[in-house]
Write a protein that binds this DNA or RNA. Structure first.
Lengths: 213, 213
DNA sequence: TCGTGGATTTACCAAATGGTAAAAAAACAA
DNA sequence: TTGTTTTTTTACCATTTGGTAAATCCACGA
């Protein structure tokens, strides 16, 4: 068994686990957890179903492994937000990184979106152990910037929510965007410009929400 | 059969169809299309499965009926955007209405999110026939405001995307928000304030994206 | 009260699906 | 080459699930 403890995985094991996870990402992100079948994953991976169950304990095991492995990648852009950098530039660069990542990894974005939509039944622990601490840490950083007068008064938590919502929207709601934007080749540049303008305006504003009355 | 043509539905038919659709909304929005089962819907509705299939042709029929019926409600806030009103107030009020609606109808929001995430396999026609024309119309209105100098230069399409993404985020990603905001009773007020500030800043800015460089 | 048509239940079914046992095949160490 | 371990396949299985047929129940008008 590949999952026996204290045994370094063989080359073939590494390769097949990787192939399976990639196939699973494709299928899970497209159909959701319940909508995906082991047969689909097996076909996508070019392996037989029992062979897949030789490498993973079951469907749920594959899904959880995927989510866990991708969590770090997904949080990288936020990790890189530098407390010692220029506040406006840091946040705008973060928006850029997030949008780029969603554009390059739409399957990952949809995988997470699917999981959260269903109430995060399988990734909830990771949310508490990984996402929450990072979120709190970076919110504190932004709050510090605000208190230091380097940013207009704003709500760090909801700022981050807005960034996540807007950047991932293009991956998660691609089907809708495709209908509404027509056959436009790539909305990415215009989306990036718009988000830069929007968050730029919010961050540049001297008096924050006050002027909106 | 209830679906025979040119027959006004009896009182009991109306009631049961309503009960079934409400139960289906509950189940579909929680588990997605594939994740939902007729047995769950039947249990939620307090009816037997065959009885449900007496009122609808099948699972897909229920789902499509739900989506179609809710589409209008969902678009109401955008329909109400008045071309003759004050641009900034109209858009900010639209944001408010959208956020309120997402807060009051989270199941509907998640139902749509689920469907779009899967590539809109069943609602695609409605997207073209209902959403697209409205979207184009209102984008033209906003573009007109920009050209008239009543708004700073901005991208109407992506502005609407941003509004949708941010307002629906709280319903669609509720599980995540719950983890990150703790047991905070209701994020709605602070979310509303933040969105008002953000879109207010974008719309108030005299030179649009230019100042961000 | 009786009969008729609409509404509901009971008893199923076929296909799909997650998963398993065991044999066969391939890799590999000696 | 041979023996052993790892990998893969074949042949299944039990459960779930969308759906159906037919019998039964029931509301209601004549």
């Amino acid at each position: 068994m590949p999952d026996s403890p204290a045994k370094k995985p063989s080359r073939i094991q590494q390769r097949n686990r990787r192939v399976i996870l990639d196939a699973a990402l494709e299928v899970f992100s497209k159909h959701g957890y319940r909508g995906a079948t082991l047969d689909q994953i097996a076909a996508e991976a070019g392996l037989s179903k029992p062979n897949i169950l030789y490498y993973f304990e079951g469907k749920e095991d594959i899904h959880v492994t995927l989510l866990s492995q991708l969590m770090d990648t997904w949080l990288d852009p936020l990790v890189a937000l530098d407390p010692d950098g220029d506040p406006r530039r840091e946040i705008l660069d973060y928006v850029d990184r997030k949008l780029t990542m969603a554009g390059e990894l739409p399957r990952e974005s949809r995988l997470f979106a699917n999981e959260i939509l269903q109430g995060a039944p399988r990734i909830s622990p990771e949310l508490h152990s990984h996402l929450k601490p990072l979120f709190d840490e970076k919110c504190a950083v932004i709050a510090g910037w605000v208190e230091a007068g380097k940013l207009p008064p704003l709500d760090p938590q909801h700022l981050l929510f807005s960034i996540w919502a807007t950047t991932q929207h293009y991956a998660d709601f691609e089907a809708q965007a495709q209908v509404l934007l027509g056959a436009e080749t790539n909305p990415q540049p215009r989306a990036a410009a718009h988000l830069r303008a929007m968050f730029g305006a919010l961050l540049a504003q001297p008096s924050g929400a006050a002027s909106v009355h």
